[in-house]
Design a protein around this nucleic acid. Structure first.
Length: 669
DNA sequence: GTTGGCTCGATTTTT
DNA sequence: TCGAGCCAAC
């Protein structure tokens, strides 16, 4: 797996003309680089940073903002270190959210945040919404306003768009519009609760940063640390992020942004490609440079990508031109159904593997995490190693959330959401008892824990007492490793009690405890875990350093990456574009860009799979017939080699064909 | 109040 | 298939 751009040296040498123009553009004017896929975006941005340093800027006064942690790591590693003798000087940077976190901790006093802030993720917000909704009486039978996850989505979108709730509801959630008043009340209470418990969700991080930048004094203090800010993937910024960058610029910080409006795929997160289109208008005196020379893919792959882009609605027009030899045309592989698709992918992957292409040089991309379910089964069955990115996230696993809740509860006794979760892990404690006990938990925690003995139902006490003794150890003196270990010991019996598959979960818990033990302090560890969610489940505790493995990834998680060979699953209408996205023209356009991102990940070979028959559910025989994706127009299809299904192989007959069931009825007489 | 059994419905993408 | 929500029994 390789990250955008190539591993060459950074200097201005070896850059093409457009790249050099971007790198050496005046630091005094805002710079926007429109960089098509594979045009050396990362390389240009890092060369720009190096050039700024040559012009006299101190490395640590450069601020780099990215969207993913993966991109941040990659770029920071390549950014210029201080000149000889000042090795420690490095550019600062990270994701918008992690930079916000650092700034907020540094200026927490002014922002009224105290020093006890905790970062929570989207599902934690949803749980808090659940709690508040219940208390406001909005979850009784027939009165439920919306699902908690939906409410969390509405809340986030409203904040990120910086538009009134009623407008957001009308536009994106019309079926909730008539409950606007209740939802507004709920959100007001939710905000109050978060403030009271010093909980910051992802949006709060940006919101507080923006608020800090709106205060002239504080904005100046923050901006005083930087000469120049470099923003990656500018097509994915939302209104909050734009106003943060604008405020930095107003306070005297130079701005260089790079992006590709054809790769804007985060509309659901309230990002809008309007922002990159409007950049020249919002930043007066902008210098615009466009990179079109592609160093990644062969021309026949780019022809297809260009065709797909040409059929999109407005964008910065450009046409990618390849500098790479090789000309295998992309292939469209039509199959009978999903299991046939899985079989064909495996066959193709292994075929290339036998010809010397390592598994890690190949990736299987998909629109939605579950599209690879059958493929994963098939890969496991045939002992082909793979790692999956995207899809079900690590932090969503109940036992991981349990650990985070316990850690937070131990650090902040007043964190009611966390205690609410922890208490219900005990057999005999449900929502009512847990809620009744919440006020009892406060500083000093050790004393509250003892006091709770008497408040608990008798049958819960033995388990509780064992638990609180171990938790007390975790509160005592001792390094992070010892405290994490005690937390793990306190939690283990509860995990065992609550989950049928406890063994696997206990293993995860052990890995998590070990990881926490290696951190400086527990608070930072859990905050960073939330800010930098492991990309794949195998990333925690089970390193796969030298092994060869196939990458399975959602298209979103694949952005910025490239492989020699790319296999794209479900190139059918309903999957890509996803039928969820079909209700609005903008939705369909974003799906097209997603398709474009997928196509441009490949260097040499590209395989598009289109299963004819698809099942409504993972099990059962209800099915429909899918059409090939609308994004493969006639013109686009002319650029493909098409392969029709062979006769159904017995191996893939599986569900669609004959089934064999052992007869048991004679046993029940 | 808690828990277990049942039905019903939906099902994307991520910091 | 899976989870969330509802209902009935302890």
């Amino acid at each position: 797996m390789f990250v955008d751009g190539d591993g060459d040296d950074n200097g201005a040498r070896g850059l093409n003309e457009a790249q050099r123009a971007a790198v050496t553009a005046s630091p005094d004017r805002p710079l926007l680089i429109i960089a098509g896929a594979g045009t050396g975006k990362t390389r240009t941005l890092t060369a720009r940073a190096a050039w700024l340093v040559e012009q006299g800027c101190q490395p640590e006064r450069l601020l780099l903002l990215t969207f993913t942690r993966r991109a941040a790591r990659e770029m920071l590693a390549r950014l210029p270190a201080g000149s000889a003798g000042r090795q420690s000087a490095r550019a600062s940077g990270g994701t918008f959210h992690s930079v916000a976190y650092r700034l907020l901790r540094r200026h927490s006093a002014v922002l009224g945040l105290g020093d006890g802030v905790t970062v929570i993720d989207g599902s934690d917000v949803a749980d808090l919404i659940d709690l508040v909704r219940d208390e406001l009486g909005l979850s009784r039978s027939g009165r439920r306003v919306a699902r908690k996850a939906t409410l969390a989505e509405i809340y986030s979108r409203t904040l990120n768009l910086q538009r009134p709730l009623s407008e957001v509801l009308g536009l994106h959630y019309p079926w909730c519009a008539e409950r606007a008043a209740e939802i507004g009340t709920l959100f007001r209470e939710l905000t109050a609760r978060k403030r009271a418990s010093a909980l910051l969700d992802y949006d709060d991080l940006l919101l507080y940063w923006q608020a800090a930048m709106a205060d002239p004094g504080l904005a100046e203090t923050i901006a005083a640390d930087f000469d120049h800010v470099l923003v990656d993937e500018y097509q994915d910024v939302n209104s909050l992020q734009v106003s943060i960058v604008e405020a930095l610029h107003r306070a005297g910080v130079g701005v260089s942004a790079v992006g590709d409006d054809m790769q804007a795929i985060y509309g659901f997160r309230a990002a809008s490609r309007e922002h990159i289109l409007e950049f020249p208008a919002r930043f007066a005196g902008t210098e615009l440079v466009t990179l079109e020379r592609n160093y990644r893919s062969s021309q026949s792959l780019l022809d297809l990508a260009n065709q797909v882009a040409a059929e999109a609605s407005e964008s910065f027009r450009r046409r990618l031109v390849s500098s790479t030899a090789g000309s295998a045309r992309p292939e469209l592989i039509v199959s009978h159904d999903e299991s046939d698709e899985a079989a064909r992918v495996v066959e193709c992957v292994l075929g290339h593997h036998e010809c010397g292409v390592a598994l890690r040089e190949q990736a299987v991309l998909m629109r939605a995490g579950h599209h690879s379910a059958l493929l994963e089964l098939e890969l496991s069955r045939r002992n082909i190693p793979f790692v999956k990115y995207g899809g079900i996230r690590y932090l969503e696993a109940a036992h991981i959330k349990d650990f985070l809740a316990l850690a937070r509860a131990s650090l902040h006794p007043g964190d009611q959401v966390s205690w609410f979760r922890v208490l219900q892990l005990f057999d005999g404690v449900g929502p009512a008892t847990a809620k009744r006990l919440l006020p009892e938990l406060r500083e000093p925690l050790a004393e509250s824990l003892v006091a709770l003995d008497l408040a608990l139902p008798v049958n819960v006490r033995p388990a509780w007492q064992r638990f609180r003794v171990e938790l007390a150890n975790a509160l005592g003196p001792g390094d992070t490793a010892a405290r994490a270990a005690w937390l793990g010991r306190a939690l283990a019996p509860l995990v065992e009690l609550n989950y049928a598959d406890a063994a696997a979960r206990l293993e995860d818990l052990e890995a998590l405890v070990a990881a926490a033990g290696g951190a400086n302090d527990l608070q930072t560890f859990i905050d960073e875990l939330v800010l930098d969610q492991p990309q794949s489940t195998s990333e925690v505790g089970k390193p796969k350093l030298d092994e060869d493995y196939l990458v399975l990834s959602t298209i979103h998680s694949a952005k910025g990456l490239e492989w020699t060979i790319v296999h794209l699953l479900r190139t059918t209408d309903g999957s890509l574009p996803a039928d969820m996205a079909l209700s609005s023209p903008e939705g369909v356009e974003e799906e097209r860009r997603l398709f474009y991102v997928a196509l441009t990940r490949a260097r040499r070979n590209l395989y598009l799979y289109a299963p004819r028959r698809y099942h409504f559910r993972p099990v059962g025989d209800e099915h429909g017939y899918a059409r090939i994706s609308r994004f493969l127009s006639d013109e686009a299809q002319r650029l493909l080699v098409r392969r029709e299904p062979k006769l159904l192989a017995p191996e893939s007959a599986g569900r669609g064909g004959r089934t064999v069931t052992p007869a048991l009825d004679h046993l029940w007489d």
